[in-house]
Amino acid sequence: MSTILSVENLSKIYTLGSGLFGPSRELVALNDISLTVKAGETLAIVGESGCGKTSLGRCIIQAQPATEGRVYYHPKDAAKVELTALSKRELKPWRRDVRMIFQDPMSSLNPNMRVFDLVAEPLRIHRIARGRELEERVYDVLAKVGIPSDAAGRYPHAFSGGQRQRIGIARALVLDPKLVIADEAVSALDVSIQAQVLNLLDDLKEEFGLTYIFISHDLGVVNYIADRVVVMYLGHVVENAPTDLLFERPRHPYTEMLLAALPVADPTRRKGRSTTPRGEIPYLGNRPQGCPFHTRCKYAQDRCRSEKPALRAIDGTDQMAACHFAEALELQGAFEAPQKASA
């Protein structure tokens, strides 16, 4: 598989409390992130609030400038483009290829525009189609996401959360993108609607030949949809591995903690006290020295407190982890036993 996107040493530092009075402080949201996305795969970025996953998504799509580092987009038949080096005008053609689906379908749809205009807006901006052709393309993509054409004259407030998210997906897909970044795209939805949208994303991926970067905090959803998972903690990538491997045998203690904390919809598999996570996520402005996770890690050694582990490949696997003891630790996975035939 060819690479469609690569991120090199990306950092994002926010300056807080800038103003006439008072000192400003720095907040490192992303710390030296590197990753590649292969064409046709679904890469999930998981982590808890404040881990930087949303900042990463926004820096990749150039919704906000990165402080350092580069983001490359690799078009199919052309040389790679450094998105981080482009001006707003130069970026515009690439905005057709890289699209975003937002978490909150209510706030991401302009309440003053009808569904038709919402979906047509990207086509109009890029002057791709007009008149009859525009109409056809809009109705076509609406049909694909399951919104009947007679609803196109309505305003977003007339739709339920799931339907609004479908409209958001239609907006992303109407430009025939190659790469779609979905930022917590199903988190605000009820379970039954969430399942509908997940299936829809699955189908559309096939049909449009899409690549997804799927940002989520929900490991259950990530397990379902992703081919590869990047786990983030306090602005660092702590693990990057194919989904099966990550859930089978995590290589970073934080991944293990996340998996252990995930409630499973089966009362016979209740967690014991031993797996209850320790500690709290440190306040953003108060990052620990050494390994960012050492304050909560039950395997932490002296070395962890002083030396920051680099993200490195684990020999013989496709896994990468940022832990000094990645090879040595026998960490617990989270797979359920295959269900019996009776279920």
Partner: peptide, 24 residues
Amino acid sequence: LMNSVPHLRRKADRQRLSPIKGTV
């Protein structure tokens, strides 16, 4: 409802979710 929740499965064992049709 129970069929709508993704279970942690290996890729080979993954089944398509069967959501409830329509909305509440």
